[in-house]
């Protein structure tokens, strides 16, 4: 059910995201990269861009802010929803990200179950808003029925 790209330098956080989404969105095709170096060029060259990019704000090297600005400078990626995922709730940080073109600014809570809930809320919202296409035949249903 759509593609989601995670840009996250922390292995621990990346694992938590994968674990959370595999439970809430088992149909989602997930790709995880550890940094934003060369990412925009790769996205532009790819046949299909992800519907959602989940972006960690604090990364070494090309930081989340810079990557956000680079993504938003490319009209070819305008349809990609960029969800900033960070451990700060500081109002100034939120304003800066929205000004730079983030579609969502989501707080990364400490508790895993809350983390999963927050992540699910953000992914659900953008999937419903952007109406991502479903996966093809043979996919696995997310319910017992």
């Amino acid at each position: 059910m759509g593609r989601l790209l995670v840009v996250e330098d922390s292995e621990e956080d990346a694992e938590a995201i994968e674990r959370a989404l595999s439970r809430t969105h088992p149909l989602l095709r997930l790709e995880i990269v550890a940094d934003g170096k060369g990412l925009v060029d790769r996205l532009l060259a790819a046949d299909e861009v992800p519907g959602i990019i989940l972006l960690d704000l604090n990364m070494p090297g090309l930081g989340g802010h810079s990557l956000l600005q680079t993504i938003r400078s490319r009209p070819e990626l305008a349809e990609v929803a960029v969800v900033v995922f960070t451990s700060s709730t500081a109002p100034a940080e939120v304003d800066a990200c929205y000004a730079a073109g983030a579609d969502s600014y989501i707080y990364k809570p400490l508790n895993f179950e809350l983390f999963r809930t927050v992540l699910k809320g953000a992914v659900d919202y953008w999937q419903q808003t952007r109406r991502q296409p479903p996966s093809g035949e043979g996919s696995v249903p997310p319910s017992v029925k």
Binding site: M1, Q127, Q128, R131, Q132, P133, P134, S135, E137, G138, S139, V140, P141, S143
Partner: peptide, 21 residues
């Protein structure tokens, strides 16, 4: 909310969702 179909002889279970086709 969804519709699924499985066929005799395998081929997996096809799923239709509201956001899709």
């Amino acid at each position: 909310l969804y519709l699924r179909r499985g066929l005799r002889g395998g081929g997996g279970v096809a799923t239709w969702l509201p956001s899709g086709e």
